[in-house]
């Protein structure tokens, strides 16, 4: 694992995270109970970020599409779950299982009807503009159907438990576990299934893949679909602890980009470690920085990563 660029990114991020937390405990000068609580909160927040980033790492990493509709698709999945729970009265976690294939279909449709027409655009600005339009369209359609008043999906497992003396919300723990399961599922699909092999082939060399008989456009549609399905699961798992408004997903769009670029494009383990890293950076950072300082730190990090690691950024395409 150490021999590959991606492996190094994952291990490096992991090491920085562990060392950072250790440093905060030892030299932070804060009450250790408070730090534990912050770390647990950060881990769980990171789980949420991982869920949102997994879909994006496929869409951005394999297709090279700056998907600005990621957050809007997340909101769409949340409302889908809300609709199923409130109209049919089913368990929200069962609704997650149903929303994933619906979102897969939506993603497939977007890629095959719109984005596949734009793959010749080398500057990537047209796909970005289409996803921007898509994001506005989804948010405002949700606004027209459900209105702007906040809605909520009641969780059947509301409540909290103690972990190492810190309090943790049960729905958030479920979301964290879900993030790890989705990441594992995606790794298995990408590494072991024929579709995964084709996706990796297309990501490595589109022309080469088409020469050996891969239907590149179909694989593109499949990849966007898989990305959307991951978002579908994310939306369902986030809904029980999110105040549901049409713009609920927007804040995640940017963070997902940060995480995906940080963890390496198209790298599922990278998104997993990157998401947890950013979650911790934000919560632990809030111990030392006031107001929106931690978020500023996250963006500063992003620009730095963009500047200093261009070769890592293009890793998935070359």
């Amino acid at each position: 694992m150490l021999t590959t660029e991606r492996g190094r990114i994952v291990l490096g991020l992991f090491a920085i995270t562990v060392l950072g937390i250790a440093a905060v405990y030892l030299f932070g000068g804060k009450d250790s109970n408070l730090v534990t609580q912050t770390v647990v909160t950060g881990l769980l927040l990171g789980g949420v970020y991982v869920l949102v980033s997994l879909g994006l790492t496929l869409i951005f990493g394999v297709l090279g599409i700056v998907n600005f509709a990621q957050g809007a698709m997340l909101a769409m999945a949340m409302y889908l779950v809300y609709f199923m729970v409130s109209s049919a009265g089913i368990n929200p976690y069962l609704a997650v299982v149903l929303s994933a294939p619906i979102m897969f279909g939506f993603g497939w449709l977007v890629q095959s009807t719109l984005m596949n027409r734009l793959i010749t655009d080398v500057g990537h600005s047209r796909p970005l503009l289409v996803t921007l339009g898509l994001s506005l369209l989804i948010s405002n359609t949700l606004l027209m159907i459900f209105g702007g008043r906040p809605l909520n999906v009641p969780s059947p497992y509301a409540g909290s438990v103690q972990i190492l003396g810190a309090i943790a919300d049960v729905p958030r723990i479920i979301a964290f576990v879900g993030a790890v399961i989705v990441a594992g599922g995606l790794i298995v699909i990408l590494r072991k299934s024929p579709v995964g092999l084709a996706i990796r082939a297309v990501a490595a060399n589109g022309t080469g893949a088409s020469l050996v008989g891969v239907n590149v456009k179909r694989i593109y549609a499949m990849t966007f679909g898989l990305g959307a399905a991951s978002v579908g699961v994310a939306g369902g798992l986030l809904a029980p602890f999110t105040s549901l408004v049409p713009s609920a997903g927007d804040q995640f769009t940017t963070l997902a980009f940060v995480i995906v670029v940080l963890g390496g494009l198209g790298s599922v383990p990278g998104a997993l470690v990157g998401g947890i890293f950013i979650g911790l950076l934000q919560t632990v950072g809030s111990l030392f920085l006031p107001g929106s300082g931690p978020l500023l730190l996250v963006f500063g990090m992003f620009v730095l990563v963009l500047f200093l690691r261009p070769q890592g950024l293009f890793g998935a395409n070359k």
Binding site: L129, V130, G133, L134, L136, L137, M144
Partner: peptide
């Protein structure tokens, strides 16, 4: 939201 939805469709 209809105005922005139309604007989005036009953009796409």
């Amino acid at each position: 939201g209809l105005d922005i939805a139309i604007y989005a469709i036009l953009l796409i």
